[in-house]
Design a protein around this nucleic acid. Structure first.
Lengths: 195, 195
DNA sequence: GCATCTATACCGTCTGGTCGGTTTTTATCT
DNA sequence: AGATAAAAACCGACCAGACGGTATAGATGC
């Protein structure tokens, strides 16, 4: 029932108060702080400051709310990737390296947005279908441009490992270790396959 | 097969019947099929075939049940890793490569067991503390033996990406692609750092 | 006799969702 | 511009069911 139109409209429309985004922010905070199992409508009501009626007016069901979280996640990821590709084309940088860099940067900038993954996996796994699709597209895009496809796949997997581990709360790496890993990944992905 | 209860229960007296494992299996199936949010005691009762009293006799609370899942996951992972190290020592194989191989093999053999991660993250994130600890120990172990520590870290992250993506239901790779990635990871992790 | 269950009834709380009503914005007409 | 009507946005009390957990009485087997 929830159409994707309203989600895309929010950014393109006039300066109407982005209530939906405020609610989604609150939902992400709840998942991030308390775990996906504690994402209840009442918790979002408390966290957002809106009333229950208001929340359910914008998202007619809990499933719709999570669909909204997933939609925003996908929109953000797509935007970031396209921006990275545009930037690479302008600066003449290796596009694969630029994409890997963007994917890695996503973790720092959009940790809470990615909590949609946990919420969706908990509520009903098929809500992750659009995420699967998006990830597949990005993966194809990166691998098809990469000088060393298997290495590109490994880099993507490592980036996913960082993301998902962070989302699940398994802190697996210190910031400076991560910086070294990221630099190495960007380098590896720019080189042709050895031998 | 050792007793999993001893990890959560101080009274590890006699060899426990397999009932607990049957219940844990059922819980994992529920999470795997329906999502962590649908892991309820009643669902486990239905899935396991035991009565509610029987389930709650073996796991006095939902939290205890999830702790049981986590304990079994950790026990299994540790067993696998130690077996891999022993095997490497006997065959003279590179221990780091053997560990990476074991970690990757874990995905195929123990997918359902790893559903404990989702269940724990949903119920209460601190239940993941022992998992964090175990992963840190394995990581240290691998990295300290690796000829190229950053590469080892990348390989571990890629393996985690595979695992976690699989657990969350984001199927990210086909079996033959994964075979190629695994071979390459094992190779990369055995070589010294370039230049 | 103790441990391990089955079976069922029950309780207080939480949860998703509904509903009628109120406020705020927007469109329309003069 | 000001009045006004309609639509959109929001509120909060309420409900039916699900949930985690308790309690009880009895069966089975070592």
């Amino acid at each position: 029932m929830t159409d994707a139109r309203s989600f895309i409209d929010v950014s393109a429309d006039t300066a109407r108060p982005a209530t939906r985004d405020v609610i989604l922010d609150a939902a992400e905070r709840v998942v991030s702080r308390d775990g996906s199992g504690r994402l209840t409508i009442d918790a979002v009501v408390r966290e957002s400051g809106f009333s229950k009626g208001g929340v359910l007016y914008n998202f007619p069901s809990k499933q719709a709310l999570i669909e909204g979280m997933v939609s925003r996640l996908i929109l953000q990821a797509r935007t970031d990737c396209e921006a990275a590709l545009d930037g690479a084309q302008l600066s003449g940088e290796n596009p694969v390296a630029a994409l890997i860099r963007a994917i890695l940067a996503f973790k720092h900038a959009n940790r809470d947005v990615a909590m949609a993954l946990l919420a969706a996996a908990a509520e009903s796994p098929e809500l992750l279908d659009p995420v699967r699709e998006m990830m597949a597209r990005i993966r194809e895009d990166v691998i098809s441009r990469a000088p060393d496809p298997i290495m590109a796949r490994i880099a993507l997997l490592a980036a996913d490992g960082l993301h998902l581990g962070d989302i699940l709360g398994l802190d697996m790496i210190t910031p400076d270790e991560q910086a070294a890993v990221e630099a190495r990944l960007v380098q590896l992905v720019s080189e042709p396959a050895p031998r």
